[in-house]
Design a binder for these strands. Structure first.
Length: 118
DNA sequence: AGCTTGACTTTGA
DNA sequence: GTCAAAGCCAAGC
């Protein structure tokens, strides 16, 4: 079973996303699809992005650790200073070039694989 | 009430 | 490998 309180998918989708993103280890990144899939719908990856848009009210949300499945900083433009996203990633040891994370599959953190291991 | 946009993903050609 | 189209659910107009 899930070790995280994200069972309530019918509950606040945003809260579930925030909770998971908050659990992302430092120096690691994940994709919207991974989060969406963890919540039950990989197709609703857009909702994850939408939820992140509301994450600005929650300063504890490391949204910079969330990128698209391409490892591209798709949401960096939504940061206060767009470059802050890359700065934060590099501050955690993540190499980023041209808005793209290097060694993405290496630092990729899959919640469904790390948390839901049975 | 309906239509458009959006921090995406997947599948098909 | 790339390009185009469909699907997804919610918020905004």
């Amino acid at each position: 079973m899930s070790t995280r309180p994200v069972s309530q998918k019918n509950a606040d989708f945003f809260q579930s996303v925030f909770d998971l993103v908050r659990c992302i280890p430092k120096g690691r990144v994940t994709s919207y699809g991974a989060i969406a899939k963890y919540l039950g719908s990989a197709r609703s990856s857009r909702m994850v992005g939408w939820a992140m848009n509301a994450s600005h009210v929650h300063l504890d949300i490391p949204a910079h650790r969330v990128v698209n499945r391409n490892g591209l900083l798709s949401g960096k433009m939504h940061f206060s200073p767009p470059e802050s996203m890359q700065t934060r990633l590099e501050a955690e040891g993540i190499r980023v070039e041209k808005d793209q994370i290097l060694d993405f599959p290496k630092i990729f953190w899959d919640p469904n694989a790390e948390l839901s291991i049975d």
